[in-house]
Design a protein around this nucleic acid. Structure first.
Lengths: 246, 246
DNA sequence: GGAATAGTGTCTGTAAGACATTATCCG
DNA sequence: CGGATAATGTCTTACAGACACTATTCC
């Protein structure tokens, strides 16, 4: 582990460890990510993913992620999916010095409008498509991190029950379908979708006190079931772009 | 990013950054991982994944991974798959202090027997099944890292062309099937496997100077094709264990 | 009844699972 | 020839894609 070199007292370099968050949610039929406006240099005034350094020497990474989630987005650990995304450690990714960032992906259900960061910073939901096309250019390598996070979410929709994390405690099948359609950016057939989710035992379970209105026939309500993985996966139509790459 | 607290001069804690490698290969019809015997404390004499601290302040993470790959396994960057696995940062994972480890997954083709670590440390291939069942108990949280690495490899075989990374520059279809069977630990039907890989355009391409012998009809040789992802994926039989969990 | 949305059914093509047969090498 | 391994073919079943219909609410 430690190199046995000429200099016996060689000590490895230390780095600053940050935790950055890709927090995704659905708003206005649109996949959105939470961005904060940076109040200090570097990149002052630009937008960035919420995040920050470890608070103290003994803070766990996931703990730090949850802390930032609370501080900057007001989101508690319940009713929220959180998973590690990747580490970003390019030597020049932060002008202040060697900062390595552990990125986490969080999926939040639809929330009451105003996300007030308790940290007195500007936090606002931004459509992912906008952020990725450089509309507000993001600080650091956060555009890359965001892209990776969205990719991960798209992939996990196929093989896991992650979609329910975008919904509230109960939801209709149409709402669940919206999740897939919006995150993937493709239309799905309601009948086939229906058949699929119903035949995947344990994916969603009926919330028996079921009802909800919209002008038409009331839809049954469901809650997330015990199943976390989907076999076979939810079929994902391939966009032309994907096919060109393949 | 930086917290605006009472103490204006608060500085974030620093950590030591290590890079650890899960290097997988196929030997003796068995999935094996490269382990090194630790020469110093902590965990002196125990086995661990190859790895080490960053060499200097400006070393990139992937660069460090490649360096360790060369130093401890004698593996160059060619003919080798390398991808990031995850970060491990539990505060007490290293008794020396706060050490955060970026784990990388490497897939090596079958190699001529002796892997001589140039670093004068004992490096030896060990069957993954053994290492995971605690036969040689691994140092730190390396058992977890190894498990995650194997999981990742298993998953990626389904949806990507990763399997070819286990093979040499050219290979037969039977050899490719071996990869799947050994890594997944399940038998596959040769005919169906044949049909599948042949119908996946660009997965493997014939290496026209084709031949190889074994006592039977010579098999055609193939090289990895341009395609990196498999649509639809290679079907993976589910073991009973998987079904119980689902 | 009409508009609107929810839920169900049917047909068809594609691809996976199971299994038999032919082809090409060695001795 | 026989033994061995490679390559190809056929039948059946599961499931996705496409599309038509019935059901329940509000007006």
């Amino acid at each position: 582990m430690v190199r046995s070199m000429a200099d016996d007292r060689w000590v490895p370099p230390t780095v600053l460890l940050a935790v950055d968050l890709v927090i995704l949610t659905l708003r206005n039929a649109c996949l959105q990510v939470l961005l904060v406006e940076r109040g200090i240099d570097p990149y002052q005034g630009m937008f960035a993913l919420p995040g920050g350094f470890l608070n103290h020497e003994r803070e766990d990474l996931v703990t730090a992620a949850h802390r930032e989630l609370a501080e900057e987005a007001g989101l508690g650990p319940d009713q929220l999916h959180l998973e590690q995304l990747a580490v970003y450690g390019a030597p020049d990714r932060d002008p202040r010095g060697r900062v390595v960032s552990a990125a986490y992906l969080a999926i939040a259900p639809r929330l009451p409008e105003p996300i007030a960061g308790t940290d007195a910073v500007q936090a606002c939901w931004t459509p992912v498509a906008q952020a990725l096309s450089g509309a507000p250019r993001l600080a650091f390598d956060h555009e890359q991190i965001l892209a990776d996070g969205v990719d991960r979410a798209r992939e996990k929709l196929e093989r896991t029950a992650l979609a329910t994390a975008f919904c509230g405690p109960t939801f209709t099948i149409a709402e669940l379908q919206d999740v897939y359609e919006i995150v993937w950016g493709v239309p799905l057939d309601p009948r086939n979708f229906y058949r699929k989710v119903q035949s995947a035992d344990g994916f969603i379970v009926p919330a028996d006190a079921s009802r909800k209105t919209d002008g038409g026939r009331p839809a049954r309500l469901f809650r997330p079931g015990p199943r976390t993985t989907l076999h076979p996966p939810m079929p994902r139509p391939h966009s032309r772009a994907d096919k060109e790459k393949a």
